[in-house]
Design a protein around this nucleic acid. Structure first.
Ligand code: ZN
Ligand code: ZN
Ligand code: ZN
Ligand code: ZN
Lengths: 152, 152
DNA sequence: CTTGAACCTACAGCCGCTGTAGATTGTATC
DNA sequence: GATACAATCTACAGCGGCTGTAGGTTCAAG
């Protein structure tokens, strides 16, 4: 008789919120676990490991589709791990792209926010720069990069 | 008689998609423009400038709430531009946070993806690392940072 | 006057969750 | 066994910032 975990215990052990665990199940990322007679989920050790894997992959920025593929690869250990490497490299490339963009933004923002506004003779530097891209140094043409820059 | 622009011309001139312009209007970020007898939107020069401002601010990663505030400040030029600077600095701090996190991720991913898998004696490095955070160097505890890391 | 591109509204869907409401179940204590 | 109360259940709406669809109307060129 192996150990069984309630969904709350799974949550505490992996750091994934209860609602999120149910969400993952509904998305098919983790298999539906067994249930008690009353209908509550009961997980085993294997389920715990899968969830930890999923959590870790999310922390590293993989999206749920890629994670599904990685988990499938993990379950079916093949001789060929090329697909897994490809996903990882794709993720690395995405992170690199976003870092490049963010670095440019940072520079612009720093120039904007740290300019010692000289008595703001009629104009505020921040507002001014936002109103006229020619006051920027670089270009932030994120049309193709699909960068998600939502802040705080 | 000033120039008038259709929504499509606004789109071409600012690079903001037609649907997005309508979305901004529905969110109250830009005022409802005049209409033709047939009901089509007609914008003036001022509207064009507001939209360009909005676009530029989005490119720099500001969220729509902050942009609304910045635009209000821009319309009502006060002696005190401190609020605008505060928003810009907040944005800068957010960008810095995200850069830090991404740099850590990048390192981990690079280690994972560039490891020359030595014949993968039973295990794939990528899968292995994802399954065990202890194989990581740093920590990626993004619990509070609200980092959005969606890739590609 | 006809064509066809551009425009209109309204609403659903994307990602990855998060939060709500209202009902039910599990467990510790008496 | 009864009682209390936390934990769990389902179903669904909402977040940000759009994007896409369907089905209709209007504008401007030829
Ligand atoms: Zn000023
Ligand atoms: Zn700029
Ligand atoms: Zn391998
Ligand atoms: Zn790790």
């Amino acid at each position: 008789m192996t150990k069984e975990y309630s969904i709350g215990q799974m949550s505490r052990r992996t750091g994934v919120k209860v609602t999120t665990i149910r969400y993952y199940e509904s998305r098919g990322l983790i298999p539906s676990p067994g249930r008690t007679q009353g209908g509550q989920r009961r997980y085993d050790e294997a389920a715990l490991e899968r969830l930890a894997f999923l959590r870790h992959a999310r922390e590293l920025g993989f999206n749920l589709d890629d994670i599904a593929e990685l988990m499938a690869l993990a379950e079916t250990p093949s001789e060929d791990c090329a697909p897994a490497y490809e996903i990882a490299r794709k993720q690395l490339a995405a992170v690199d792209r976003r870092m490049t963009i963010l670095a440019q933004l940072r520079e612009e923002l720093a120039r904007m926010a740290n300019a010692d506004d000289p008595g703001h003779a009629g104009k505020c530097r921040v507002i001014e720069v936002l109103g006229d891209h020619r006051l920027c140094i670089g270009s932030h043409d994120l049309s193709d990069s699909r960068a998600d820059l939502s802040g705080s």
